[in-house]
């Protein structure tokens, strides 16, 4: 669950003021759900979604169920905690530590913070093989074959199960739930548990990073706009790049 980055945002005295009603399913998580559903359609199995978040997160969980996930667990928070990626990773690791699964499919980052840490943290805490930034998943002979986008090319990585993978939104177009899916989602089980139900120390929840303030990014001033005869303005800008901007 993330705030909609396309919704208007304001900063007042260093704090971010958002329309709190605009919380959406993180696009990268939506891709992770979609990919899990595709694998289930091809190979069978069950898709369970797990979300850590305030009461509001039940709407995004419901969306994943409407897309086709079978069941869900909502690890509830008050929404006021100062958690960072490490806190969330330790919560998820505590939850998954006694669960059986083949593939842990996560979004590669959250759209609001772009941190991209939680997936590999969870994998490390659970001592799972993992890879990040997946743009394609296949199952072959019980192994997960991940196509991942690296720095200069795409890599095919083979992971034994159980394993973890973080998904890019470039791997698929998450399905839009249809009416049937939405109706069905209302009957699907959502287990609510509290962080206190997990066996973890309070100290494991502590964040060691914290946002102290937000500020507007110094806006880039729109520069000169050239309209008119293509040939003329093209040559004029080329000249300015040389004489004024000095970048040629």
């Amino acid at each position: 669950m993330v705030p909609d980055v396309n919704a208007p945002i304001q900063i007042k005295e260093g704090k971010l003021i958002q329309d709190a009603d605009r919380m959406i399913l993180n696009a990268y998580d939506a891709s992770a759900v979609e990919e899990a559903l595709v694998l289930k359609e091809k190979h069978g199995g069950e898709v369970e979604v797990v979300s850590v978040g305030a009461a509001k997160a039940s709407e995004t969980i419901r969306k994943a169920l409407a897309m086709g996930a079978d069941k869900a667990t909502h690890i509830t928070t008050s929404g006021d905690e100062l958690f960072d990626s490490g806190s969330y990773a330790r919560i998820l690791a505590a939850f998954f530590s006694d669960k059986e699964f083949d593939i842990l499919s996560l979004g590669k980052q959250s759209q609001d913070t772009d941190s991209g840490l939680t997936g590999s943290m969870v994998a490390e805490l659970l001592n799972l093989p993992y890879t990040t930034n997946a743009v394609g998943l296949e199952i072959e002979d019980g192994k997960l074959i991940v196509k991942r986008q690296g720095d200069t090319g795409q890599e095919m990585i083979e992971l034994p199960t159980p394993c973890a993978v973080t998904c890019s939104n470039d791997m698929n177009e998450p399905r839009i739930p249809n009416l049937k899916g939405i109706m069905a989602s209302k009957r699907k089980p959502v287990e609510q548990i509290e962080i206190d139900d997990l066996s973890m120390d309070d100290s494991a929840l502590e964040a060691n990073t914290q946002v102290v303030s937000y500020e507007e990014k110094p806006a880039r001033e729109a520069g000169k706009k050239f309209e008119g005869e293509a040939d003329e303005i093209a040559r004029e800008v080329a000249q300015l790049l040389d004489t004024e901007a000095n970048v040629l």
Partner: peptide, 28 residues
């Protein structure tokens, strides 16, 4: 994109790029 551009050329890229390329070639 023009809100962040220092130099915005409003025009059809197929008409703008050939003279743009030619002019940069000259400058270089």
């Amino acid at each position: 994109i023009f809100d962040v551009a220092d130099y915005g050329i409003v025009g059809d890229l197929y008409k703008v790029l050939p003279p743009f390329i030619e002019e940069i070639k000259k400058i270089k």
